[in-house]
C-alpha cells in the first residue's frame, strides 16, 4: 500500500540530484548531455538506496503508526459507512452500498430532518464563528499593536482562554448565560438594559448565537496572536510611508496593513474552521447529546447516531462528511503552500 508513496519519495529525491548534476554541466557553458544525466542518475541511485534504507528506522515507525491509527482509522470509518451496521453486534463487510449517503441526500432535501438542521447549523457556526473571531482578533491585535503598554500581559490574558478545555469553558459559559444569576443578564440589568435579558441557552433564537459568542471568546485571543505576529512582521516604515502618502488611519489599515495579513488570515481561518467542526465537546457539555434543532451540529449528531442510537453506519457516514468538510477547509491552504513551495 505504501509502495507508491515510497516510490514518489524516492523519485523527488532523484530528480533533485539530477538537477544539481545538470547544473554542474551548465556552469561551464555546455548543454546538459542526456547520457551524462543518465549516468548521474544511475550513480546516484545506489546512494539513494542506501540513504533510504539508512533513514528508514527514523521515519519508518512513526509513519507506520500514523498510517495505521490515523489514516487507517479514517479508511475503516469510511468502510463502515458503506455497510448497514446498526445495533449491537459486529458489522458485516459484505454488501457495500451508498445507502447511508443517499439517505443523507434525501435528508438534505427535507428541511425538518435532523441531518439538514445539523448541517445548516454546522455551516452557520463555521462561517459566523470564523468570520467574527477573525474580525475581533484583528481588532484586538491592532489595538495591542498600537504600542499599548504591557503588551505581553495582554497577549497572555487574551490567549489564556484558548488553553482552557472546551469542557471548562462550556460549564463556565452556561453559568455566564444563566438567565437569573448569570453575569450576562446581571450586567444587562445593572446598566439598565434589563429589557434585553434573555434565557440565552433556552431561547432557540439565541442558542446558537450564544454558543458562537462563547467560542469566539475562547478563540479570539488565538486569532489576535496570529494577527499580532503578522502585524509585527510589517516594518514601521510601511505605516509611516502610508501616513506621509496621506492615508488616514482607517485607510492605512484597510489598504496597506490588512492586505499584508492575508497569510495570517488564511492560517488562522483554517485553524478556527477546524475547531468549529470539532466543537462537539463544547455543545455536548453544555446541552448533552441532544442540543435541540436550533443548535444541533453534525459532530453531536454523529455521536448521537453512533453511540446512542447505535446507527453505526449512519454515524460513520456523518463522520466521513465531517472529514470531507475538514479536508475542504485544509486542502486549499495546503495547495497554496504547495504552490509556494513551502511544502
Amino acid at each position: 500500500m505504501f509502495d507508491a508513496f515510497f516510490r514518489a519519495l524516492g523519485r523527488s529525491r532523484e530528480t533533485r540530484e539530477t538537477e544539481s548534476h545538470s547544473d554542474d554541466v551548465r556552469t561551464d557553458g555546455g548543454v546538459a548531455d542526456p547520457a551524462m544525466a543518465g549516468e548521474a542518475e544511475a550513480s546516484s541511485s545506489s546512494v539513494l538506496d542506501s540513504e533510504f534504507v539508512q533513514s528508514l528506522p527514523f521515519w519508518g515507525p512513526p509513519a507506520l503508526l500514523v498510517g495505521l491509527f490515523v489514516y487507517g482509522a479514517v479508511a475503516w470509518n469510511v468502510l463502515i459507512s458503506l455497510t448497514d451496521w446498526s445495533g449491537l453486534g459486529q458489522p458485516e463487510y459484505e454488501n457495500f452500498d451508498l445507502s447511508v449517503y443517499s439517505q443523507m441526500l434525501n435528508d438534505l432535501l427535507d428541511p425538518t430532518s435532523n441531518f439538514f438542521v445539523a448541517t445548516r447549523n454546522t455551516v452557520a457556526l463555521l462561517v459566523a464563528f470564523t468570520v467574527i473571531t477573525l474580525l475581533l482578533g484583528l481588532l484586538l491585535a491592532i489595538l495591542v499593536d498600537q504600542g499599548v503598554r504591557f503588551e505581553n500581559t495582554f497577549r497572555t490574558i487574551y490567549l489564556l482562554p484558548m488553553s482552557l478545555s472546551f469542557v471548562v469553558t462550556a460549564i463556565f459559559w452556561s453559568w455566564m448565560y444563566n438567565p437569573s444569576i448569570g453575569l450576562i443578564n446581571e450586567t444587562l440589568r445593572t446598566v439598565g438594559l434589563g429589557a434585553f435579558t434573555q434565557a440565552w441557552l433556552s431561547n432557540p433564537q439565541f442558542k446558537l448565537g450564544a454558543v458562537i459568542f462563547a467560542l469566539m471568546w475562547q478563540f479570539s485571543g488565538y486569532a489576535m496572536i496570529v494577527y499580532l505576529a503578522g502585524l509585527q512582521a510589517i516594518p514601521n516604515e510601511q505605516y509611516e510611508a502610508a501616513r506621509t502618502d496621506g492615508a488616514s488611519t482607517f485607510r492605512m489599515y484597510r489598504r496597506v496593513v490588512v492586505p499584508q495579513l492575508r497569510s495570517s488570515t488564511t492560517s488562522a481561518a483554517v485553524v478556527l474552521m477546524v475547531f468549529a467542526l470539532k466543537a462537539f465537546d463544547f455543545l455536548f457539555v453544555m446541552f448533552g447529546p441532544n442540543p435541540g434543532p436550533s443548535t444541533d451540529i453534525l459532530s453531536v449528531m454523529m455521536f448521537r447516531e453512533a453511540f446512542m442510537s447505535t446507527n453505526w453506519a449512519y454515524g460513520s457516514g456523518i463522520a466521513t462528511v465531517l472529514f470531507l468538510m475538514a479536508l475542504g477547509v485544509i486542502a486549499p491552504y495546503l495547495y497554496r503552500q504547495y504552490q509556494r513551495g513551502e511544502l
Partner: peptide, 15 residues
C-alpha cells in the same frame, strides 16, 4: 435508537 429519537423530539419540544 428510539430512545435517542424521542430525546431529540423533546429537545425540539423544549425549544
Amino acid at each position: 435508537e428510539i430512545k435517542s429519537n424521542i430525546e431529540g423530539a423533546f429537545a425540539s419540544f423544549l425549544e
